[in-house]
Design a protein around this nucleic acid. Structure first.
Length: 156
DNA sequence: GCCAACGTTGGC
DNA sequence: GCCAACGTTGGC
């Protein structure tokens, strides 16, 4: 079992939307490293921290899981899409993705400032590769963040 | 295949 | 909305 962090623009595709959708293709990723993680390393059932970026309160808002084997991102073939890729063909797609399914939404997000205060989270890729939208997460970091979310239950 | 220019990400 | 950081592109 591997653990991951998935970044989304919190104002565009928040965890509430994934909850409604249940499951869907993680489309629009246009970064080779992130693609390689989806294509080569993700396995069905892997758990993912669901991170909201570019929003008022950035942080981890819940948990998702990998729900399919990798397959081509359809948006690369769609001329009208922002994610259209003229070099890609059906025979030789460039961008691959996996389906992502909703697991749970935290009662309160674990915010970036809170995570930065935790010395045991210092090694997270989140701090050193700030522009990578899909990142591997160590099991101990995943568990630590899940615990932080658990402790916040019933805070208010 | 190097590297400058460009474009985008994302925290603040 | 600014701007630093960095991934990607394209000229050579």
């Amino acid at each position: 079992m591997n653990y991951w962090l998935l970044k989304t623009e919190g104002d565009v595709y928040p965890i509430e939307q994934l909850e409604k959708d249940g499951k869907g293709p993680w489309s629009g990723v246009r970064n080779f490293k992130a693609r390689n993680y989806m294509r080569d390393d993700m396995r069905v059932g892997d758990l993912c921290l669901f991170y909201h970026a570019s929003t008022k309160v950035t942080g981890v808002y819940g948990i998702a899981k990998v729900a399919s084997a990798p397959y081509p991102d359809e948006t690369q073939f769609d001329k009208k899409s922002d994610y259209y890729e003229p070099r890609a063909t059906e025979e030789n797609p460039i961008w691959m993705l996996v389906d992502v399914a909703f697991v749970k939404k935290f009662d309160h997000p674990v915010t970036v400032p809170e995570m930065k205060k935790e010395s045991s989270l210092r090694g997270m890729v989140l701090w050193t590769a700030p522009r990578l939208s899909i990142q591997p997460v160590l099991e101990k970091h995943y568990k630590h963040i899940a615990e932080m979310a658990g402790k916040k239950k019933g805070l208010f």
